[in-house]
Amino acid sequence: MNIFRLAGDMTHLFSVLVLLLKIHTIKSCAGISLKTQELYAIVFTTRYLDLFTTYISLYNTIMKLIFLGSSISIVWYMRHHKVVRRSYDKDQDTFRHYLLMLPCLLLALLINEKFTFLEVMWAFSLYLEAVAILPQLVLLQRTRNIDNLTGQYVLLLGAYRALYVLNWIYRYFTEENYVHWITWVSGIVQTLLYADFFYYYFQSWKNNVKLQLPA
């Protein structure tokens, strides 16, 4: 495992921890899109079906279980926890996220590495992950004033994606037969979606002002 991949996994882990910290200690999910969290729960459930068929490493298995468990529990908290759910910006979080799922499924049926159930689900999870942040970005834009934890959550997610791109470049040049077009293209699309947010985040950080996105 190279340093980019490890750093990518760690920023991904930290992003989830930041979100759980916000929910557990502040008992608030203000500014967090339930739509995006539901999409992530579906992304990890459909991608990690190979937990039952393939063993890669203890690291791999533990990380998969963490991402599955955390994404499902975040959705549970936002929907059912009697205090947390009251802070959910339901009226602002109106992105019709289920409309993203059908095109991703059709694309997965058309473009996959092999036409098997696991491979189609794997491709579906990658296409869906690429666009899963959209409801969150729309919500950020609408809420205008973004608290630090929410900003850091999105920043860490974006860093995780950018580090994975570096990991792919590194692996392409150092490993033989390392070619994953589906992962690369959907991963790059996903990283570009964060670029706009990054721009405003660094502007506000540079000028030492509270992050505000333009309407």
């Binding site: 991904h12 890669i56 791999n60 990380m63 794997w122 037969n177 070619v179 994953h180 992962t183």
Partner: peptide
């Protein structure tokens, strides 16, 4: 194994 067989990334 073929390159696409082993999916070791998360």
């Amino acid at each position: 194994a073929e390159s696409s067989d082993l999916k070791d990334e998360l």
